[in-house]
């Protein structure tokens, strides 16, 4: 009888091995351990087994029954899982089709640059300030040491509203308005639109500027170099080479123009940098004592520096744009790129 049992085990396991579908496993179960199954039959005939073998026979029968039960259960479970997965797989979609959402709009590239620059100077402790875009001649020129009938007025071709009222030609008047109200120390940044009577590939009658001003005791030209170097490396990369060269602005002295190595050609000379290898990025200088005098700051006690830069120019260099007018044409195909 025990040999029968062994034979049964072998054939049952063999059948399980070949079974694939749920039905086939169920057939095996019925055939061997069902109510009328072969193993059940053997067990039922235990009476015919010699007494001495009975315990062993019973034990072996039960073990085999448990084994088959477990194997079949496991197989059925596997089958059930696979079946579910088959259902899910039939629901397969094309994941390469685009998602359905209202696509985000874009922030104007010049505003993006403004944000970036303001963030850098915020980390240096500069606060943003504002002033009117239509200004008194006094704030736009005279308080900044640009008297009427002075050739320095030629540097900025001006739109006039009245003899005494202009569209501001730079955001520098804001520094005067702030200094009139607040005593040093001062660290301010004034971004905004400015207007000059000029229009070609590199000039638009309106553009955006940021001006910064720092006033405190003991501020030096070296500090000006330090802050502007840190700023330019931040925005154009740590490896940026820059140079400071003498220039003239009526409201600063000494004045410095700051150039960076041309980002297009790396200094070899190209169309963008006019073959010079350098790009003018910003104007700067130590605040002229005459300006301090106009706002009643004592220039023996306080010193400071100011700087200004055009945002469109930075954006043009960053994004490789060659015509400044594109910024104000607002062609959606242009704006969507930033």
């Amino acid at each position: 009888m025990i040999s029968d049992l062994q034979q049964l085990e072998e054939s049952a396991l063999a059948e399980l091995e070949t079974a694939k579908t749920e039905d086939q496993f169920l057939v095996v179960r019925t055939k061997y351990i069902g109510r009328k199954g072969l193993l059940t039959g053997l067990l039922r005939n235990i009476a015919q087994v010699p007494d001495a073998e009975k315990p062993l026979f019973g034990k072996l029968c039960n073990e085999l029954k448990n084994l088959l039960n477990t194997k079949i259960e496991e197989a059925l479970q596997r089958q059930a899982i696979r079946k579910k997965e088959d259902v899910l797989l039939k629901e397969k979609i094309d994941v390469t089709l685009p998602g359905s959402v209202i696509k985000c709009g874009r922030i104007h590239p010049v505003i993006q640059v403004r944000r970036e620059i303001c963030a850098i100077f915020a980390s240096f402790g500069f606060s943003v300030v504002e002033g009117p875009e239509i200004e008194l001649d006094y704030y736009n020129f005279e308080a900044l040491n640009i008297p009427k009938d002075h050739p320095a007025r030629d540097m900025q071709d001006t739109f006039y509203i009245e003899d005494n009222i202009v569209l501001r030609t730079h955001t520098s008047p804001v520094q005067v308005r702030i200094m009139e109200k607040i005593q040093p120390p001062l660290r301010i940044l004034s971004p905004g639109k400015v207007y000059r009577r000029d229009s070609d590939v590199s000039h638009t009658p309106m553009f955006n500027q940021i001006e910064g001003l720092l006033v405190d005791k003991g501020v030096s030209f070296g500090d000006l170099k330090g802050i502007l170097t840190a700023f330019l490396k931040n925005i154009f990369g740590e490896g940026t080479t820059l140079r400071f060269r003498p220039s003239f602005f009526p409201f600063t002295e000494p004045s410095a123009e700051v150039d960076i190595r041309c980002v297009m050609c790396g200094g070899r000379g190209c169309r963008v940098c006019g073959q010079s290898g350098w790009l003018e990025i910003l104007g700067s200088g130590m605040v002229d004592p005459a300006v301090f005098q106009n706002v009643n700051y004592d220039s023996e006690e306080y010193s400071g520096f100011a700087f200004g830069l055009g945002l469109e120019r930075i954006a043009m260099l960053k994004y490789g744009i060659s015509d400044i007018r594109l910024f104000f044409e607002n062609d959606i195909r242009f704006l969507k790129q930033f």
Partner: peptide, 25 residues
């Protein structure tokens, strides 16, 4: 003086200034 001495030779420093509260508009 500084123009002819050369701007390049002026060392780069950072201003030592007190922490002030930043005004936000």
């Amino acid at each position: 003086v500084i123009r002819l001495y050369s701007y390049d030779r002026v060392p780069v420093t950072l201003p030592a200034i007190a922490v002030t509260e930043m005004a936000i508009i």
